[in-house]
């Protein structure tokens, strides 16, 4: 698969939130205003991209040669947790401004399904290192797209009369459902029509 095809697949066709339901907790929890949504999206994109490459390297240079592939889940989650901690320290040291913007989101990202999800999907799909990098970046961008759109919808919903029982989470789920309905317009035939497959 070409890199553009991977980008389109993970941003639109298999959008991590709206199609695969990976990373729903932060999607519902942190989408109340657009500023936080952009911060969370940027944090997740950063981590999915770095984690894709690092877990790919660990899997192919450490787990496979020593015949330890069954320890994949355990290794990946530890690597991701360490990586997030490390990134937090590096960002804090190198760019205090970026740390101020992303700092509070980073600890939350460790337990975000999207990060472990993309690491496992890269291995399942047998991607090489560049494809993994692209998939990680695209998964993060897809997450950002969905969460930013969602936060804008929710900011507007605050001004509208919503029935009491639907206020807050229920209406957020329903809005997400309608967004997912719109995203169904993107399917595999899109790749064929664009001559990418």
């Amino acid at each position: 698969m070409s890199y553009i095809a991977i980008l389109i697949t993970f941003i639109f066709i298999n959008n991590f939130i709206l199609v695969q339901f990976l990373g729903l907790c932060p999607f519902i929890g942190v989408s109340k205003d657009s500023e936080n949504a952009i911060g969370m999206g940027a944090g997740v994109t950063f981590v999915t991209t770095v984690a894709s490459v690092v877990t790919w390297a660990i899997y192919h240079f450490l787990l496979v040669p020593f015949d330890l592939a069954y320890l994949q889940t355990l290794t990946f989650i530890l690597v991701i947790a360490t990586l997030v901690q490390l990134l937090e320290m590096v960002i804090q040291k190198v760019s205090p401004a970026l740390y101020k913007a992303l700092g509070i989101y980073l600890p939350l990202i460790t337990t975000n399904c999207a990060v472990l999800g993309i690491a496992i999907i890269n291995i399942t799909n047998d991607y090489n290192v560049m494809e993994s990098f692209t998939a990680g970046l695209a998964a993060g961008l897809g997450f950002t797209l969905a969460i930013v759109l969602m936060s804008n919808i929710r900011e507007r919903l605050d001004l509208h009369p919503v029935r009491k029982a639907y206020r807050g989470m229920p209406i957020a789920f329903i809005s997400a459902g309608l967004m997912a309905l719109a995203f169904m317009a993107f399917d595999k035939s899109l790749l064929t029509n664009l001559h990418l497959v």
Binding site: L18, V19, Q20, F21, Y166, M169, P170, I171, A172, F173, I174, A176, G177, L178, A180, L181, F183, M184
Partner: peptide, 10 residues
């Protein structure tokens, strides 16, 4: 996918 989100909302 949309059905799951809508149903969860309801």
């Amino acid at each position: 996918a949309p059905g799951a989100l809508l149903l969860m909302g309801f």
